[in-house]
C-alpha cells in the first residue's frame, strides 16, 4: 500500500514535461503500431528507414530557421514519400540508386546539423534530432502531434479493408476494382505521419523501433489481422509508458545520475517485447501440437 501511495503521489505526475512526454510517445507509438502492421505485411521496412532519415535532414534544417522541428520532419518526410511513390516499386533495400539518394540527403543533414551547432552554439541539436528528446520537446508540438496521429488512425480505419486486400495481393485488388493507386497514396501519407511522429518521439535513428517492433511482435502472436493490430498498439503503449517512467526514475541511477535516454529505454523494451512474442508464439505452437497429438 505504501508503495502504491508513493507512486500515486510521486512528483512524476506533477511534471508537465512528463505529461508531454507521455502524450508524445503514446500517440506516436499507437499510430506507428497500427501503420506498422501494414508495413510488415507489405515488406516496406527499408522505406521506413528512408522516410525517417530524410525527415531528419528536414528537422536539422528547421533548427537553422528556428521553426518547430516537427514541421521539418513532416515536410521532408512528405517529400521523400512523394519521391518513393514516383519511383514506384524500386525502393527496395537492394537498389543502389535509392541508397545513394538517401546518403545524399544524410550528407545534407550533416551539413545542416553542423550549421546548427554554429548558429546556436549548442551541439545538443544533433542528439535531439537523431536520438529524440521527449522531455525537452516544444510543448506546442504536442497538440499537433496528437491531432495528426488521430487523423491518421481515422484514415487507416476508413481504408482498412481495401488496404488489406492491396497489401496481400495488389493484382487481385486491381481485378476486384479497388483503386489501388489511391489506396497506396493514402497509405503512404499515413506511413509518412507515423514515421515522422515516431522520429520526433524517438529520434530519427531509433524511430524504426516504434515502426517495426510492436507490429512485428503483434504479427508473430496473432493469427488475425485485427488482433495483430490490437496487440501491436497495446505493446507500443506499454513500452511508451514504461520507457518514460524508467527514464524519469533513472535520474537517480548509477553511474552518472544524469538519467538514461528515454528513446534507448523504449527501444530496448520494444526489443524485449519482440523476443517475448517469439517465445509466446513458439509456446503456443507447442501447446497446439501437444493438443493435436492428444486428439489423434
Amino acid at each position: 500500500m505504501m508503495y502504491l501511495d508513493a507512486f500515486v503521489h510521486s512528483p512524476f505526475w506533477h511534471s508537465p514535461q512528463v505529461w508531454h512526454a507521455l502524450f508524445i510517445t503514446t500517440s506516436a507509438g499507437v499510430v506507428s503500431a497500427v501503420v506498422g502492421v501494414f508495413i510488415v505485411l507489405r515488406g516496406q521496412s527499408f522505406a521506413g528507414h528512408i522516410l525517417t532519415d530524410v525527415g531528419a535532414t528536414g528537422a536539422s534544417a528547421s533548427f537553422l530557421f528556428s521553426i518547430n522541428s516537427w514541421y521539418g520532419f513532416l515536410s521532408f518526410g512528405l517529400l521523400a514519400g512523394a519521391g518513393m511513390e514516383a519511383l514506384g516499386k524500386r525502393t527496395r533495400g537492394r537498389d543502389t540508386a535509392t541508397g545513394l539518394v538517401l546518403s545524399f540527403f544524410m550528407g545534407l543533414g550533416a551539413l545542416f546539423l553542423f550549421l546548427d551547432t554554429r548558429v546556436s552554439n549548442t551541439a545538443d541539436v544533433t542528439m535531439s534530432v537523431l536520438f529524440g528528446s521527449v522531455f525537452t520537446a516544444d510543448p506546442n508540438t504536442t497538440p499537433w502531434l496528437i491531432g495528426t496521429s488521430a487523423a491518421t488512425l481515422l484514415v487507416v480505419a476508413a481504408i482498412y479493408r481495401p488496404l488489406l486486400i492491396c497489401s496481400i495481393d495488389a493484382e487481385w485488388a486491381q481485378a476486384r476494382g479497388i483503386p489501388v493507386r489511391w489506396v497506396g497514396l493514402l497509405f503512404m501519407l499515413a506511413f509518412v505521419v507515423a514515421a515522422e511522429d515516431s522520429a520526433l518521439a524517438m529520434g530519427a535513428l531509433l524511430s524504426t523501433a516504434f515502426l517495426m517492433g510492436p507490429a512485428a511482435a503483434g504479427v508473430r502472436i496473432a493469427h488475425r489481422i485485427g488482433a495483430a493490430i490490437g496487440i501491436s498498439a497495446l505493446l507500443a503503449v506499454m513500452a511508451a509508458w514504461l520507457g518514460v517512467g524508467l527514464a524519469y526514475a533513472s535520474y537517480n541511477w548509477p553511474p552518472a545520475g544524469r538519467g538514461y535516454p528515454c528513446s534507448f529505454l523504449i527501444a530496448d523494451i520494444l526489443f524485449m517485447e519482440y523476443l517475448g512474442a517469439g517465445m509466446a508464439a513458439r509456446w503456443r505452437a507447442h501447446i497446439r501440437r501437444l493438443g493435436g497429438k492428444r486428439c489423434t
Partner: peptide
C-alpha cells in the same frame, strides 16, 4: 536486422 540495428544505436546513445 532493423531491430538489432536499433538496439545497437540505442546502446550507442546510452
Amino acid at each position: 536486422t532493423a531491430l538489432t540495428l536499433v538496439l545497437a544505436l540505442g546502446a550507442g546513445e546510452l
